[in-house]
Computed example of a mutant assay.
Amino acid sequence: METLRFEQLPNIVATLTNEVRELKALLLNKTGDKPEIETPLNIKEVSKLTELSVPTLYGYVQRNEIPFYKKGNRLKFFKTEIIDWIKTGKAKTLKEIEAEADMCLSNIRK
């Protein structure tokens, strides 16, 4: 860090003031974007989204295999949670299975 001289002080303060303004503007823009409130879906909408039948979805709800909310006797779902639930069912590729088997075998040999 270089030593500052008294004569440089006005320029440095001006530079810092501009940078603070820019940071403040960036922060205000970032906080101004409020996250969109997600509206709940009914079971028919989830059926269209997942391409599963309504009775199949009721079975998943009964076994607590799918994320859901119940208000009174109405089932509600959130799209992001349903998409995350679908992603958890990813099948492993052959390479992933082989790598996992190699890891297990190497641990057994130790």
Rank of each mutant, 00 (worst) to 15 (best):
K71P: 07
L27Q: 09
V46M: 08
F6G: 09
I82M: 07
T15S: 10
G32D: 07
E19M: 02
Q62K: 11
L75S: 03
Y58N: 12
N11G: 11
T17R: 04
D33P: 14
L52W: 02
G72S: 09
Y69A: 08
Y58E: 08
T88Y: 03
E38L: 12
N18Q: 11
V54Y: 00
T56H: 12
E98I: 15
D84N: 13
K95L: 15
T50I: 05
V20M: 07
R109L: 15
M103N: 09
L23N: 13
R74A: 09
L41Y: 03
N18V: 02
S53T: 10
I97H: 14
S47F: 04
I97L: 10
Q8T: 01
N42G: 11
L26R: 00
N29W: 06
T50D: 03
V54D: 00
N42W: 05
N73L: 01
N11L: 15
R63V: 02
E45P: 08
E45H: 11
R109V: 14
K70F: 01
I43Q: 04
K30H: 08
K92R: 14
E98R: 14
V46L: 10
D102C: 03
D102H: 12
K79L: 02
L26D: 07
L16N: 01
I83K: 15
E36P: 07
F77Q: 11
R74P: 05
L41V: 14
C104K: 15
T80W: 07
Q8G: 06
S106H: 05
Y60A: 06
E96M: 14
V61F: 05
N11T: 06
Y60G: 01
L16Y: 00
N42P: 07
K92Q: 11
L75T: 10
D33Q: 10
N29T: 14
